[in-house]
Design a protein around this nucleic acid. Sequence first.
DNA 1: CGGAATGTTGATATGCCTCAACTAAAGTGG
DNA 2: CCACTTTAGTTGAGGCATATCAACATTCCG
Lengths: 272, 272
Amino acid sequence: MPLLRPAPSGNVGPPHARARPAQAGDKIHPSMDAYHDILLRKLKAHSPLDNADEKLLRTLRGRTRELAPGEDLIHQGEQSRMSSVVLEGMVGRYHTLPGGRRSYLSFHMAGDWPDLQSLLLDQMDHAVCAAGKATIVLIRHDQIRAICDRRQTVGDALWRETLIDAAIFRRAISNQGGRAARGRIAHFFCELFFRAQAAGLVDGQTMALPLNQGQIGDALGLALVTVNRMLQALRKTRAIEFRVGKLTVRDWNHLAKLAEFDPDYLQMAARP
Amino acid sequence: MPLLRPAPSGNVGPPHARARPAQAGDKIHPSMDAYHDILLRKLKAHSPLDNADEKLLRTLRGRTRELAPGEDLIHQGEQSRMSSVVLEGMVGRYHTLPGGRRSYLSFHMAGDWPDLQSLLLDQMDHAVCAAGKATIVLIRHDQIRAICDRRQTVGDALWRETLIDAAIFRRAISNQGGRAARGRIAHFFCELFFRAQAAGLVDGQTMALPLNQGQIGDALGLALVTVNRMLQALRKTRAIEFRVGKLTVRDWNHLAKLAEFDPDYLQMAARP
DNA sequence: CGGAATGTTGATATGCCTCAACTAAAGTGG
DNA sequence: CCACTTTAGTTGAGGCATATCAACATTCCG
């Protein structure tokens, strides 16, 4: 439980961070773009989709949008007629606490749907912003609804996507409630690395992780200074390195042990 | 971040707590039972259901089961072919941390579906147990699937139910990460009281809350002793009383202020 | 009535927060 | 391309909220 007052610089979003509606400048993707591969890869990791399902999903059309670091995609309390899929970079979901502090709830990488729940919920209970530069594709809800209606399995895959999301939130609760600072950070890294690996976003032992130490603190309920010191401790174990937007896992087994990490909750077990 | 070691008595479930499969002794409810009212009331709080939807939902048949205090309904890692709806009492979802400690993720009251996600997820990432005596009704997944297939709106209502669940988990994350002990407990009580009120489970200013101080600690990442002291502090403000399984809110506004509580995330806004 | 579970209190320890200054790196404009 | 500004990271000192330990009191329940 770190500070309960307005945060020092870096913990509150940068001043330029404001949500804006889609504009003419945003690119409309031509048909059959690479984003369908990204989107399908993710869904197939947990849901069986046959050719017909896949074909239907590939009919989804959206407008891509590039987000500057820290830029908000949607604010807490807003409504939306679209949901987004991350194509590049990373976005984060967060609550703004009374007092202005920010509490990050989760981070999302290529293939993730950070606001799929807006399909059925009227109001955003949290905001979504870019962590580092990010590219997303915005898909209209009526399009998504249409393909869910046509094929049960497609609707199931999306429902399942939101359910795994919830499992990740649950794990965040017990991570914060049950682990001391070092293990908490280790678990955070384990999960992100594992998910990145599944999404094909790990290059050798390294993944892009465009977060600063203050943001990691805001995600885990720790003060920036504590994160700094624990990162040094983790570095010393030779399990990881984390610098300038990159996370390198040198010793996965060791890290997983420190984190007491068990990936079952990500539901990526045996999927043919 | 309280203890990271095997918990003292009371934080680990009682020894008799074991999941068991449904048995002959369990009652099979005759048609048109009161549990449909409970179930419908909850769904209607967030989803529009017309007469046809309602009629369809009333065709659901299930086996009721009574749970002793602390008894597990389902364990972490298990699979299930049914989901349950709480009819009476309260159940909790929890993770078992390495070392045996328990981290409660949420608590559920009449009308809630504490394991609806098992409809689409193969493995339970958490366990569900009774807090105090509880009665649930177990409904087979194939029945639930069948009515979702028949009416889009019914499927949507259930999907939405799981999405609100996720919003509650998100709030738990920022509650733990962003509030000190007293406010954290206040927020916990606010949410439960608000939900109980919406479910018609508040009698005057009092609701049943069959939790002990250790369990509240395990839900909020606090030590039992801290919970005890903060409860005393909250009692002194005259906002609440909490004793022997009952929570009484004497001054809601004051409590909500201490908790910085904003119920938007429960999505119960304007629903005619 | 007796034992177990739950709640209460006091004393002490410590992990993490806070404050504050400084260094290093990255981005910006002349 | 270098001076300047801004952002991010690092280090040290000190304090406090909360954990821990250990009794004891109370309530519950068979």
